[in-house]
């Protein structure tokens, strides 16, 4: 059972990574306009990523 010593932290670390990724996405405004994001993928022109909105 000694592998649990490092397997559990590894599992938790990976989970925490996903959690942080989600929080980052939330903070940087990626959930502000879900419908718009779906449409923008179809636009041809060079679309620069949205600068984080100053709120």
């Amino acid at each position: 059972m000694s592998m649990l010593i490092y397997l559990i932290p590894v599992a938790l670390f990976l989970g925490a990574l996903a959690l942080l990724a989600f929080l980052w996405a939330l903070r940087s405004g990626q959930y502000e306009d879900l419908d718009g994001a779906a449409e923008r993928v179809l636009l041809d022109d060079e679309d620069e990523p949205q600068t984080p909105a100053k709120r």
């Binding site: 306009d33 718009g36 909105a53």
Partner: peptide, 13 residues
């Protein structure tokens, strides 16, 4: 300088 449409809220900034 910049114009950005938000389709979900139907707004333009």
């Amino acid at each position: 300088e910049a114009a950005r449409v938000n389709l979900s809220t139907r707004r333009v900034t």
